[in-house]
Amino acid sequence: MATTTASMTEQLSDAVRWQARAEAYTIQTMLGCRDVEMARTALIESPLRRKIERSAIALTIGEATGMSESQIQLRLSIADRVREKTPQVWDAFIEGLIDFSRVRDISATIEKLHRPESIARLDNRVIAYATEHTGAELQQWLRRFVQRVEADLATERADAERANRHVSVTHGDDSMSWLNAYLPSHQAAAIEARLRKEARKAADPDDDRAVAQREADLLVAWCTSSEATTSAIDANIAVTVGADVLAGAAPGFAESTDGGWAVPAPWLADVIATGSTFWHRIVVDPVTDDVLSHEYVGRFAPDSLALALRFLHGVCQAPGCRVPSERCDLDHRIPHPVGPTNGDNMGPLCRRHHNLKGHGLLHWSTSPPKPPPAEPMVIELYPPVPPIAMEYVAA
């Protein structure tokens, strides 16, 4: 990178940090105003007058900042919660290491945690991640954190929320309406995958519909025609789940490979137990049967490796990019033929970031895959694939 460009990026980093510090200073000033007013009104003898004046504190701060009372109250409650329960997060905010949007997401996570030791663990770990990743990545990390450290309580919440599944129709203008469905995530993901695949199949030359229009028409056909629903769901979705969770030894979640959603593992077990034709289980033993440990001579990954890499990473590996891996190219970190065609040297990059890397404008900045856990990783797939006996012979 040119020296001038490096200097500009350093200036941008400094600007972002100063902006975060400015946000922290604003929040601190709001807290100071609130505390001063609370102390002043505490001296008012009349309880009614004291209550009235205190109710106007947020309004007074809002008038000075151009915000509504509800916005002020929300910021103050977030600040109080983070300052009291996660002091390391609060200090990082004051120093400009994280901005208020990240503080807000961390505060929402604190509300979901019920055990003091879980909150303390969050305080100790979240800053290292939040300072090195995008806001969207932090939100997914926080969701996974809750599901892992308090899996039992998170599972109870998911089971309770599942009872609220419903479909609603809202009629709008211009003869159009919204069809909304609040569904368990794994079911919604199956519907989404099927729509994407079916709508992108080769169409009749006279069919001038856009892909989005085809998806809408397919959904209507599936919902209104009995003939349209007879075909098996042809999707390709994977979730990962710990072996102890799968065995029922511990509560936990099955998570999509792109990190976009997760459901309690028993939900998937229930679906598999019905004999549905589009679920299948592949158990990957990281010690003896891990295909990622094999190296291939050719440039292009064989199907087994390509599928495993896409399920392993889930999304494009450029920092902050969320393009699903099935729509990405498989790129060599160290270019072929110097770099091997194996799991450690390959990963998905969307076409845009792949081109940028090819022109020397993007460098691999993500860490190599972490060593596999001690227990096997379980991947849930649909549709089912027949067992394949594979043997790799060294040249």
Rank of each mutant, 00 (worst) to 15 (best):
E23Q: 15
A24Y: 00
A24E: 03
Y25A: 15
Y25Q: 11
Y25F: 14
Y25C: 12
Y25G: 09
T26C: 08
T26R: 13
T26A: 07
T26H: 07
Q28S: 07
Q28V: 13
Q28D: 05
T29S: 13
T29N: 05
M30Y: 06
M30S: 06
L31C: 14
L31K: 08
G32S: 14
C33Y: 13
C33D: 11
C33S: 11
C33G: 10
C33M: 11
R34M: 04
R34F: 13
R34P: 00
D35F: 04
D35W: 11
V36E: 14
V36W: 06
E37G: 13
E37Q: 09
M38V: 10
M38L: 14
M38A: 04
M38P: 00
A39Y: 09
A39L: 07
R40H: 08
R40Q: 09
T41E: 10
T41W: 05
A42F: 05
A42N: 06
L43V: 14
I44H: 03
I44T: 09
I44Y: 05
E45L: 15
S46F: 07
P47C: 03
P47D: 05
L48A: 14
L48Q: 12
L48K: 14
L48C: 07
L48G: 12
L48S: 15
L48D: 14
R49P: 02
R49H: 08
I52Y: 06
I52M: 15
E53D: 13
E53G: 03
R54G: 10
R54E: 09
R54V: 01
R54S: 11
S55D: 09
A56F: 05
A56Q: 15
A56L: 12
A56I: 11
A56H: 07
A56C: 06
A56R: 15
I57D: 03
I57H: 01
I57R: 00
I57E: 01
I57W: 00
A58W: 00
L59I: 14
L59E: 11
L59H: 14
T60Q: 12
T60G: 09
T60S: 12
T60Y: 09
I61L: 09
I61Y: 06
I61E: 02
G62F: 01
G62E: 03
A64T: 08
A64H: 07
A64M: 08
A64W: 05
A64I: 02
T65K: 06
T65G: 04
T65V: 06
T65M: 13
G66Y: 05
G66N: 02
M67Q: 05
M67E: 10
M67K: 12
S68C: 02
S68I: 01
E69Q: 11
E69F: 00
S70R: 10
Q71Y: 09
Q71K: 04
Q71M: 03
I72M: 04
I72R: 01
Q73T: 06
L74N: 11
L74C: 12
L74S: 06
R75Y: 04
L76D: 01
L76W: 04
S77E: 13
S77C: 07
S77T: 10
I78R: 12
D80Y: 08
D80P: 01
R81G: 02
V82D: 02
R83V: 05
R83I: 01
E84T: 09
E84L: 08
K85F: 05
K85S: 11
T86Q: 01
T86Y: 07
T86N: 01
